[in-house]
């Protein structure tokens, strides 16, 4: 299979007044063409920052990439010239943001914002771009696209707005889409529809998809592989069905156990004890050790490497065998 995106040993830090926040500390992951990788983690785990670094839209300052490489279709994105990088954005890789209402420009019509992709990247006339915008809206199943192309974002419902975001990302049929919690801001009833649409378009166009989420339910349905992040590192990566059966990291296990279950109705909900660490002051050893039920002395001193669990799995836990075992 062709490797589409390969992130190697990526480090990102934010230099703030309170100190240096190490948001991403050596992330490795890759996405193949047509594959869906789900990146899972709590807020502040570095999943969105990694995505922003890949897209090249990191707020800088204060954000800085201090180490690592990002290969996209064989080329190192970080060594590309600014103009070359810009041409990749939107055309070859695109991003879907969480809150479409704030992510769309409030004073431009959706037709203008969709058409802009064709005007800028393909040099189309405004009229042709407008026609393409209508096609796009049809494609993401927005009713009466022709009449609504001149409407503004606030005139659409939440689900329809997110469809427009998706349409914008799909416009130039990119090879990679990064969806940053695409359904979090939506009603539960709409979430499924939007996710289904995204998965369908991805299959049709054979795009690689990075799905950033903290919703385990979404992941099970659409992802091929999962990467679990904690405090700026990947702690476990595995094919989706294997991880649900037997997690190889106590953090993943904790996440899975926090899903409310119908058969445990009436009992107290499980939660991982403690809070995620401050990124300015990450604990030595394994970052998860203060919250880990399995922590030993070695966890407080030695940072666990990413142990190879099987051909397709890896876990950054000194005791992955024990974790798998019970």
């Amino acid at each position: 299979m062709d490797t589409l995106l390969d992130v190697r040993d990526l480090h990102v830090e934010f230099r703030t007044r309170d100190g240096v926040a190490k948001a991403v500390n050596g992330v490795n992951y890759s996405v193949n063409a047509g594959e869906t990788l789900a990146v899972l983690g709590e807020s502040g785990s570095g999943k969105s920052v990694t995505a922003q670094a890949i897209m090249g839209i990191l707020d800088s300052p204060p954000g800085h990439i201090t180490q690592g490489k990002i290969f996209f279709q064989g080329a190192d994105l970080l060594s590309l010239h600014r103009e070359a990088r810009r041409q990749v954005r939107g055309a070859k890789m695109a991003m879907i943001f969480q809150d479409a209402l704030s992510a769309l420009n409030p004073v431009l019509s959706v037709g203008d914002q969709l058409g802009e992709m064709y005007v800028v990247h393909r040099g189309m006339s405004r009229k042709d771009a407008r026609a393409r915008a209508v096609e796009l809206m049809d494609r993401v199943r927005i009713p009466a696209a022709k009449e609504r192309v001149g409407d503004y974002p606030h005139q659409f419902s939440g689900g329809m707005r997110q469809r427009i975001m998706i349409a914008m990302a799909m416009a130039l049929e990119p090879d990679l889409i990064i969806a940053d919690e695409p359904t979090t801001a939506l009603d539960v009833t709409v979430q499924a529809q939007v996710m289904e649409l995204l998965a369908e378009l991805q299959r049709e166009m054979r795009m690689g998809l990075i799905l950033i989420t903290h919703d385990l339910g979404v992941v099970a349905d659409v992802a091929d592989r999962i990467a679990v992040m904690y405090a700026g590192r990947i702690v476990e990566t595995a094919p989706v069905h294997e991880i649900y059966k037997a997690p190889a990291h106590p953090y993943t296990k904790g996440l899975l156990e926090s899903i409310p279950r119908l058969d445990l109705k009436g009992k107290e909900l499980y939660a991982i004890k403690g809070l995620p660490p401050s990124l300015i002051n990450i604990p030595p050893g394994c970052a998860f050790n203060p919250r880990c039920p399995m922590a030993q002395e070695v966890c407080r001193t030695d940072v666990p490497p990413l142990y190879k669990v099987s051909q397709t799995r890896a876990s950054a836990c000194h005791f992955w065998k024990e974790c798998l075992g019970d």
Partner: peptide, 10 residues
């Protein structure tokens, strides 16, 4: 956010 979107659009 919409400025970030505009940048992400290339």
């Amino acid at each position: 956010d919409y400025v970030r979107t505009a940048v992400a659009k290339g």
